[in-house]
Design a protein around this nucleic acid. Structure first.
Length: 527
RNA sequence: GCGGGUAUAGCUUAGUGGUAAAGCCCUAGCCUUCCAAGCUAGUUAUGUGGGUUCGAUUCCCACUACCCGCUCCA
């Protein structure tokens, strides 16, 4: 992306963030206390939007399918579950930073080295009177010039110089001593610079169960789940045994997960608390690959149904070597966010890995008896795992539009429109009396509101001019507005009596619709 | 985690070492017959904590949050 394009996209993202706050889609968590890094709250409209997304996903993937069952697992997770899944052991990589280049390295992947370590206690510059006291070391191998160590150390200390005119070459090193080291991993193999102490970066939130549990009581340790998938695997046997299922079948779950991200970024895109919509689709081994492709297509169709066109999505076929070791096939479904192309969902063929691991660790039989083939087997699994909040952000980015409109006087202005699909829109219809100081209009509008309210989210508004009310609804993406006027009351004769103006958000076109037809018309549009 | 930037009302922006300004939005009232009309009145702000100072929104430091670039993302 060019600089200009990047700036434009940053500006666009800022406008979207601003609108989300102004209209009550998304707020920063604990804003009045300065905010909580990587956490966000959904305001009234955001809550509606998210509910619409989750409801539609659930309807399509659970309620309308005979072969997928729902689950709602606990967020607090038994530590053994996450030991079995590999999250406790393999999920916490000790990391070091290079003191010179600031590069971050995985401590367990550093090649052990041997050589001579040159230690220093600090550095100074006689002419300017500058000095710094701070221990530092450089490792050089036997055949390297010792001056290389001094040069590297000077470079390191020069970063503390306040006067940038001073050449690193002219500073004096203090307290040089040497030490022979073998098989050390404390130095950066690239440049010999000392590294910071290895630090754990466990991405899971850890807690202790029980009011009296102290931090040292390892048996009381529990975690906030880092993914919803594990409770599905752990409850696999219960679900299968209580529901007379046969392969292939799925278990679906929507719920919060938590990851202590080092670096939350891009608005709500990478949050520490986030919601997932996951399916674990269990199948016979021979069907796994084909089902993965099938699910990919089904998921792409889903995104189209909620208003994200196929051409704004990218499918990444994760190549060999980059997939998790247990996965024979993984697709990422990505969306063109203003800040870049980023993942919305992963569709992964995970083989029998998860159930096998839980079988091993729990010692419980997790085989499934296949009635058709009369054999006991550990089913394979295909996992379409979507990020709910990411999809919300994609819906918002996709919907945001600015349109130049010209009024009768030829004056141009910007109309901001959220073009949500009617299915996802937080408010489905605005109901307005043309004038609020005419009680007959208000009364009729209230009747129309009451007629629609049991079936959809309706917004009643009688303040300000009618045009302003339309624009307010444009900005929150309400697809339809209904206006009750004097014709509704029968002032222009019986033909128009009991009809209203139906105004369309996208085209701004108006049509006349009978109140009696309104409910069914709108229900068809938002289904 | 590193580097850079930013922080004044719901939003967009002024401004000042000594009473913080405007537009939009919003609320109420009047008026108003279909695309942000008009008039009147009104609410709301210097991110947090220190320091310097008689006095700090302004200067300095730290923290927090957000944005950008790296890094990371089982």
């Amino acid at each position: 992306m060019s600089d200009a394009a990047s700036e434009k996209n940053t500006a666009l993202m800022e406008k979207i963030v601003s609108l989300c706050k102004r209209r009550g889609f998304i707020f920063q968590s604990a804003e009045i206390y300065g905010g909580l890094n990587g956490c966000w709250d959904y305001g009234p409209l955001g809550a509606e939007l998210k509910r619409n997304l989750k409801d539609y996903w659930w309807r399509k993937n659970v309620q309308e399918r005979e072969d997928i069952l729902g689950l709602d697992g606990s967020i607090l997770t038994h530590q053994d579950v996450l030991k079995a899944s590999g999250h406790v052991g393999g999920f916490s990589d000790p990391m070091c930073d290079c003191l010179l280049s600031k590069a971050r390295l995985r401590a367990d992947q550093i090649e052990p080295q041997s050589g001579t370590a040159y230690h220093y206690t600090g550095a100074s510059h006689a002419e300017s009177g500058w000095s710094v006291e701070r221990p530092y070391s450089v490792l050089i191998s036997g055949n390297q010039d010792e001056n290389k160590a001094r040069k590297t150390a000077k470079q390191y200390y020069s970063q503390f110089l306040t006067d940038k005119q001073i050449s690193p070459k002219t500073i004096e090193l203090a307290g040089e001593s040497t030490e022979e080291l073998t098989e050390t991993t404390r130095y950066n193999p690239e440049n010999g610079s000392l590294l910071t102490e290895p630090r754990e970066f466990n991405l899971m939130f850890k807690t202790h169960m029980g009011a009296s549990a102290d931090d040292g009581d390892e048996s009381a340790v529990a975690y906030l789940r880092p993914e919803t998938a594990q409770s599905i695997f752990v409850q696999f046997k219960n679900v299968a045994e209580t529901n007379r299922v046969k392969l292939p079948f799925g278990i679906a779950q929507i719920g919060k997960s938590f990851r202590n991200e080092i670096n939350p970024r891009n608005y709500t895109f990478r949050s520490r608390e986030f919601e997932q919509m996951e399916i674990e689709f269990f199948c016979r081994a021979e069907d796994g690959l084909a089902l993965t492709d099938e699910w990919l297509e089904r998921r792409l169709t889903f995104y189209e149904e909620i208003g994200i066109p196929r051409e704004h999505l990218h499918v990444l076929d994760i190549p060999d070597g980059e997939r998790a070791h247990y996965s024979q096939k993984t697709y990422d479904i990505e969306y063109e966010f203003p800040f870049g192309i980023q993942e919305l969902e992963g569709v992964a063929y995970r083989g029998a890995y998860d159930l096998t691991k839980h079988k091993e660790h729990s010692g419980k039989p997790l085989e499934f008896f296949d009635d058709e083939t009369k054999e006991k087997l550990i089913p394979h699994v295909v996992e379409p795992s979507a990020g709910c909040d990411r999809t919300i952000l994609a819906l918002i980015c996709e919907a945001y539009d600015e349109e130049t409109v010209t009024d009768e006087k030829g004056k141009e202005e910007i109309r901001t429109v959220m073009r949500f699909s009617p299915r996802m829109a937080p408010v489905k219809v605005g109901v307005f009396p043309l004038l609020k100081n005419k009680p007959e209009l208000v009364e009729k509008a209230r009747e129309v509101q009451a007629l629609l309210v049991p079936h959809m989210n309706v917004f009643y508004d009688e303040t300000a001019a009618i045009g302003r009310r339309y624009r307010r609804q444009d900005e929150i993406g309400t697809p339809f507005c209904v206006t009750i006027d004097f014709d509704t009351l029968g002032e222009s004769g019986d033909e128009l009596k009991e009809t209203v103006t139906l105004r369309h958000r996208d085209s701004m076109k108006q049509e006349r619709v009978a109140i009696a037809d309104l409910r069914n018309f709108l229900l068809d549009q938002i289904a």
